[in-house]
Design a protein around this nucleic acid. Structure first.
Lengths: 187, 187
DNA sequence: GTCTATACGATGATAGAC
DNA sequence: GTCTATCATCGTATAGAC
């Protein structure tokens, strides 16, 4: 593996485990096995490296939701699969985790995150609308508002789980959301 | 105002605006108008000050939820008032915001946060159970799971709002959650 | 491309004068 | 109680050798 790639992989790992501000050049070097020379040869600096690492993370996460929200699938299955997808409860969302940091909000990193959120929300909205069209959910349901709620349940579930140090918190939040959706089902 | 109190107020503000790690002694001193001597005379260090500041924050937030979940109120009103409480969407929850930081999770600060979360969840669960008892919500509803979901919607709503830089994101998430609860209503 | 050496400000804290 | 040195360490980056 090239040093450049080793640096990117180390950055991905550290961004997830510790966040952007805590991802120091020193840690990146230790984890990647590369020296400072390599870091600043291949990248303009810490933020440049983070952007490239997060672009990879973004692509990986998009691949997952593309499959979950496959339009061939039953809309209720899409919603169920999103809510029940396996997640690393105590580590948090690889992207959402970062918006707590001031420096992230002020940088381009924030764009990657908000675009990803927008994509997932659109998928949820479509699934909800398809469910309404097929009679699985009541026509009165506001697909936009509910799509935001469902996405918020997942992001918030990570916070509850981390605060309690207990993955179960996320699972209960997921289940509760699914129960509400199912309860609304007009089937 | 005593220097000691000025330090605590400055810490409360910085913890909310910037988080624990970004709250440096230098910033605390500038904002409070106190010197380094005062800081280390009144407190053992940065973490000690943070704990005392957050104990105050905790008390203030508890006063708010104690009122929202007043058992004299109609259970559905309690749920509605919690979901629609006014919030500083872009700044985040004064406590929940902090669990993204590694140092916070490893410190006693985390206890304050998780205890607060537990309290709110218990209030939500009671409101849901009271609503079931009065026939406002179906008996089959899992009060524990749904209570986690509702709390997660709020915590996640902050994340969506911050990522988008738009308070509206939180409001939509709140509305969506309330619509789901209302939709389940057996009234 | 990769490394080591060096720089400079910020962080978090201590010492000691007033 | 409050202040101003002073300190060791870390974070972030540049320079220049190999």
């Amino acid at each position: 593996m090239s040093k450049r790639n080793a640096l990117v992989q180390a950055a991905k790992s550290l961004l997830w485990e510790q966040g952007f501000e805590a991802m120091s050049p020193k840690k990146i070097m230790r984890l990647s096995g590369a020296g400072q020379g390599s870091l600043y040869h291949h990248f303009e600096g810490k933020q440049d490296l983070a952007l490239i690492a997060l672009a990879e993370v973004d692509a990986e996460m998009r691949a997952v939701v593309d499959e979950i929200f496959d339009r061939e699938k039953d809309p209720m299955d899409r919603l169920h699969d999103y809510l029940n997808a396996s997640r690393d409860e105590l580590k948090g969302c690889k992207l959402g985790r970062l918006v707590g940091e001031k420096t992230v909000l002020e940088s381009n990193i924030c764009n990657i995150i908000s675009k990803y959120f927008t994509t997932v929300c659109a998928y949820l909205k479509t699934a909800l609308e398809d469910a309404k069209a097929s009679g699985d959910l009541p026509p009165s349901l506001d697909a936009v508002a509910v799509s935001k709620s469902l996405q918020a349940v997942i992001q918030g579930g990570f916070i509850l789980a981390r605060a309690a140090g207990d993955p179960q918190e996320m699972r209960q939040a997921q289940e509760g959301a699914w129960m509400m959706i199912e309860g609304l089902s007009s089937r």
